[in-house]
Amino acid sequence: MRRYNIFYFIKEAFLSMVRNGVMTFASIAVLLSLLVVTGGFALLVVNIDKNLESIGVMKQIVVFCDRSASEEKVNEIYEKLIKLDNIEKDENGNVTGVVRVTKAEALQQMKEQSPGTYDDVTDENNPLYDEFDITYVDNAKVSELDYQIRQIDGIVKVNNRLELATSIENMKSGVMVIFVWFLVVLGVVSVFIIINTIKLSVFSRRNEISIMRYVGATGTFISLPFIIEGIIIGLVSSVIGYFIEMYVYSYVTKMVDSEIGQIISVYPFDDIKLYVLFGFLGVGIVTGIIGSVISLGRYLKQ
């Protein structure tokens, strides 16, 4: 069998796109809108996840020691705390999640935060406690940690954000499940619409395909131009879609930053542009190819 020149198929694909201009335009329009909608949705999900994540990062417990505890006693508490599970450690296994804040330091911090307010409080009449700021790893095991800390002698109070942490975790997984399902449904609908659009285009050219078969064209010969057409449609839609997404996203980001930028943080487009571009290219091209192959199937039977 002879080898065909790939440029022949690319030329045929381009010619066919021009000759069937309306169908080409329709395919690009459908794929483009689906990419922009799906992409926009994905970006929304990513940003919501980022914000939930930053709330979830506050995995901290504050432990207060008995005011009468001696320096030895406080050190003893420290030794016990660093032996607990679920405490943040660095990569060498050293505990980083237990930070001691003496009552003098605590007072100093308060004075710095509100100058003038606590001027009459001195180290002698300091009502604060020696405390440990504990950073833990796993929200799911925080109640266990809380219990263990309370068992340590010399600790009078434990502040944790257990409820907040749990509800954020629950909300996060709930929101993600809903969004992921939305994305899946949107993706399936996209592929379905693309298949139908290409099917229409193939149907309108079924006579051409039948002629090809009668003159002895192989399945590959018939389908390659259609597949290349699918790739080109995917490529064009992704590139246009990328620029639309960039413009819209930057506009929305600017608005969010100026209105509620202190509450919500948004990824700058530069940080995610490669994901958007390659995501669009991948989805666009693969959808184009799948659409062509599925749509052609019926007409290629000998």
Binding site: R19, N207, R213, V215, G216, T218, G219
Partner: peptide, 20 residues
């Protein structure tokens, strides 16, 4: 089948030409 069909020349009543 495609290779077999290359051994034939076929003409139809409705011509079956590529209009474009």
């Amino acid at each position: 089948v495609p290779f077999y069909r290359r051994e034939l020349g076929v003409v139809f009543q409705d011509f079956r030409l590529f209009p474009k």
